[in-house]
Design a protein around this nucleic acid. Structure first.
Lengths: 200, 200
DNA sequence: GGGTGCATGTAATGGGTTACATGATTCT
DNA sequence: AGAATCATGTAACCCATTACATGCACCC
């Protein structure tokens, strides 16, 4: 009785409510807008668009170009909007957790603390970049004329901001703890080294 | 040239550094400890343990039981520890984002705000439960005698706490915004309804 | 008597990334 | 000249969940 559970088709429908687009543009749009909480690869997008068309949830117009491959511009149909609404009415399932950084940190005792410091710094750097990008997005959305989606896009962006702030605060905290451990570890190896020399 | 990229084997190795365990116990342990940032299903665990054994990264002892199926207790080998260390030395890849709540919120204009309010409340409830569980875990870990892993387990738990706090703060903010929209929407439908009646 | 937990596993299925294939244009 | 970007798509493969299969023990 298995049934499809993923939302990779619905993102496409959702974005097509804004404006008709080609598969490539959908990919770009996903990366530029919902990218920080959802992504799709082209290996998903193109086949899914075909299925959507087969179900009559989108229609496609083909633009011919000299030399270049044809461009298929997809538009959402009324049936597509209904499908989107039905999907929206179903409670979203909680985020499935898979955080490799935390996993490696959890087993961090097996490895020198310096290594972990690098990982945390890397994460913080990414968090800073994303936070900055999100404030830009937020400002841009706030400035432009009000679309029906505007308030919701702001909420989504705000989520990212608050989460990134939390990550950064955690990063600070964790770095100080890790640095203390690193100093400790260096003292130990130093001591052992000296002892080894004397022992000889 | 594809190469395995997932860490589902390494979690098992990592947990087996704490103590030898059976597949079932590993599943339990994952849920109870790293569960909030990593999970594995038994359909992954059992086959992966077999592969690990085939590679000589773990050994298994079979306990026979009357009636019940045999229990295989796995222990990590020296080679297994080396593999774990090698994996730890590789920079963790960033969390891949897939948050259905945010996705539905992003397309929230297509649906009455009350629905979204329900979703956000649901998420907040889960966040509260998890935050509470994490403080319990944190306290328990802090109280017990110092294992080498202790400081790292605390860092991981702390991450969850800060993230949940951020989610809750965002939830508050978002709920007030959504409630405003909901009131607005009700006013509109009311007005339309009245106008409709008068119009008749 | 029937559900839940212990305990192990396999098979089917579904979902998703990556690599490959193609070819023009534009930037460095 | 060579890399990157535009632009489309398919196929191979990997990863992961879910369902199924089995069977005892315990609780209500």
């Amino acid at each position: 009785m298995s049934q499809r559970t993923s939302s990779s088709m619905e993102v496409l429908l959702g974005l097509l409510t804004i404006t008709p687009m080609s598969g490539y543009e959908l990919g770009q749009t996903i990366r530029g807008s919902v990218g920080f909480f959802w992504n799709e690869s082209y290996g998903q997008i193109y086949p899914n668009l075909k299925s959507l068309a087969a179900e009559g949830l989108v229609t496609s117009k083909t633009e011919r170009h000299k030399g270049k491959p044809d461009r298929h511009i997809y538009s959402i149909t009324k049936k597509g909007r209904e499908r989107l609404a039905a999907w929206l009415a179903v409670e979203p399932q909680p985020e499935i957790p898979r955080n490799e950084l935390l996993l490696k940190l959890f087993f961090g005792a097996q490895v020198p603390a310096e290594v972990l410091i690098g990982y945390v710094e890397g994460m913080m750097e990414r968090a800073r970049v994303l936070a900055e990008k999100l404030t830009e997005v937020w400002d841009a959305v706030s400035a432009q004329r009000q679309y029906p989606g505007t308030p919701y896009w702001k909420m989504a962006a705000r989520f990212g901001q608050l989460r990134m702030e939390a990550h950064l605060r955690w990063g600070e905290e964790t770095l100080t703890a890790l640095r203390k451990i690193a100093v400790e570890q260096n003292r130990c190896t130093e001591a052992k080294r000296r002892k080894g020399h004397v022992g000889k």
